[in-house]
């Protein structure tokens, strides 16, 4: 109670001081302007904007994931093509190995060419190249190649394709060209179907 008394004691003079001024300062509040009703168009603009943003984001994300699939498919295709390329390059490297070239040349009946002849400026003579080799033995004998290549045995020996003017063994005509073409892949068949790795 004593606390209340103290408060009361303090509080009392205040209203007494303020009371004389209260009447002078009373004034009417300015009239509040009536709020304008929100216009429909703003709402529409806002909603349409929102929808636009959502649609755009959706579209963008669809486009990105669409590209991701496309990228993935293209990468798969690129891998497959790289494999094909490697297979073919490998085959070429083996087919162009000295052994294969030598054997194929021998099968075609080719002989080592004549050595170069050299012109001498001093007189009208030509200077010959070297004489013949002492060793006259074919590259392939009964025991196989002197310089073996394990990879060649894996590749089926391509039959010599007869060409116009080629000397053929008696009784053989230049057929087989058609057969040979059957071994060739049809254009486009080497392209593997793209696959997700």
């Amino acid at each position: 109670m004593s606390t209340a008394a103290v408060i009361d004691l303090r509080a009392l003079p205040t209203p007494a001081e303020q009371q004389p001024e209260r009447g002078r300062h009373l004034r009417a509040l300015p009239a509040i302007a009536p709020r304008r009703a929100p216009r429909l168009v703003h709402g529409i603009v806002g909603l349409v904007g929102l929808a636009g943003i959502i649609v755009a984001q959706l579209g963008l994300s669809v486009a990105i994931s669409e590209s991701a699939y496309r990228l993935s498919a293209l990468q798969g295709e690129s891998t497959a093509l790289a494999r094909t390329e490697q297979t073919l390059a490998e085959e070429i490297a083996v087919l162009s190995s000295p052994q294969h070239v030598a054997v194929a040349a021998a099968e075609l009946g080719m002989l080592a060419g004549q050595p170069s002849q050299f012109l001498t400026l001093a007189d009208t003579a030509t200077a010959g190249g070297p004489d013949a080799l002492h060793m006259q033995v074919p590259a392939v004998d009964a025991f196989g190649m002197h310089v073996p290549n394990a990879l060649l045995s894996e590749i089926p020996q391509a039959a010599v394709r007869p060409h116009p003017g080629m000397l053929l063994p008696a009784g053989q005509t230049a057929t087989g060209t058609a057969d040979r073409s059957a071994d060739q892949p049809t254009p486009g068949s080497l392209l593997p179907t793209p696959a997700g790795e």
Partner: peptide, 8 residues
């Protein structure tokens, strides 16, 4: 590893 030229 492959060795296209074999024993060359």
């Amino acid at each position: 590893r492959v060795y296209p030229a074999g024993s060359v």
